[in-house]
Simulated scan of single mutants.
Amino acid sequence: MVGPPAAGPRHPRRPVERSRRRERRGPHRRLQRDRRRTVARRRLVRGAIHDLGTLGGSSSTAVAVNERGQIVGHSETADGHRRAALWDRGRAIDLGTLPGDTTSSAVAINNAGQVLVSSYGTTNGAFLWQAGRRTPLRVAGGAVEPVDLNDRGVACGTVTASADGTTRAFRWQAGRLTQLATLGGSYGNAWAVTPTGIIVGSSRSASSPVPQAVFWPAPGR
């Protein structure tokens, strides 16, 4: 009796071809994934990117937003000036300038709707805007450059003395501007304020022109 023919050798798997197919699909899939991520980043409000508009000019820039969705920055006006702007509920609001100035730019907004604004011209100062009211941040004999604002209404920035150009970090709170100490040199600069009122920045010592990172604690701490 003749038995069944011996089974022939099985065809080996072809991992190389499958790997090649994966390689061919790989770039396409990565491209699709990258496109999806790009589209997702643009979905800022209700699934789409939104043009906030201007104050009548041709350009505008947003720099900060709070948890209420209020956005601040600056915009060109119809007469060509740059003004601090607040975008709130689809409306662009001109925050104005200090008396005598022609240019302004918002730098920060907190969750109470207070806006910190730089104002340029004859004063080179700053103000806190809230519900249409401007509260100046001024110092005698110097220019004020604001940089940050927390939810307690504490602002910080840098004062440059008109006489000699030296700079000092400042804290502004409840209508009072206080210049902060340095490491012994003639330079101090503030960059940010924490929710608890700690200010961070840089300063120089009397023996070195190289700035060092520093922080100023909140009053009473």
Rank of each mutant, 00 (worst) to 15 (best):
V39M: 00
R42A: 09
R37V: 06
A62N: 04
V65W: 00
L44K: 02
L55A: 02
G56D: 01
G57D: 09
G73R: 02
R46E: 13
G53D: 12
R29C: 02
R46Q: 04
R46M: 02
S59Q: 15
G57S: 11
R68H: 14
S58I: 11
S59L: 15
I71T: 13
A64W: 03
G56M: 03
R42V: 03
N66H: 00
V63E: 10
S60A: 15
R41K: 11
S60N: 13
R33M: 03
V39D: 08
A48W: 14
R41M: 07
L52P: 07
E67I: 02
R35N: 06
D51Y: 13
T61D: 15
V63H: 08
I71H: 03
I49C: 04
N66K: 00
S59Y: 15
V72W: 08
R41Q: 13
T38R: 09
I49R: 12
G56C: 04
R37K: 00
S60W: 07
G47D: 10
D34K: 02
L44T: 14
R36S: 07
G53I: 11
R36A: 08
V39L: 06
R36N: 04
D51I: 06
R29I: 09
S60Q: 12
A48M: 14
R68M: 05
D34H: 07
R29Y: 11
L52R: 05
S60I: 13
R43P: 06
A48R: 15
G47N: 03
R36F: 02
R30Y: 12
A62C: 06
R41V: 11
R41E: 09
G57A: 10
L31W: 10
D51Q: 13
R42I: 02
G47C: 06
A40D: 06
V65I: 14
T54G: 02
R46Y: 09
V65P: 01
S58F: 11
L44Q: 10
L31E: 14
S59R: 15
A64Y: 04
I71C: 01
G47H: 12
R33K: 04
L55W: 03
R35T: 11
G73K: 00
G53Q: 08
V45D: 07
A48F: 15
I49D: 12
R46G: 06
G57P: 08
G73Y: 04
V45S: 13
D51M: 07
I49F: 10
V45E: 13
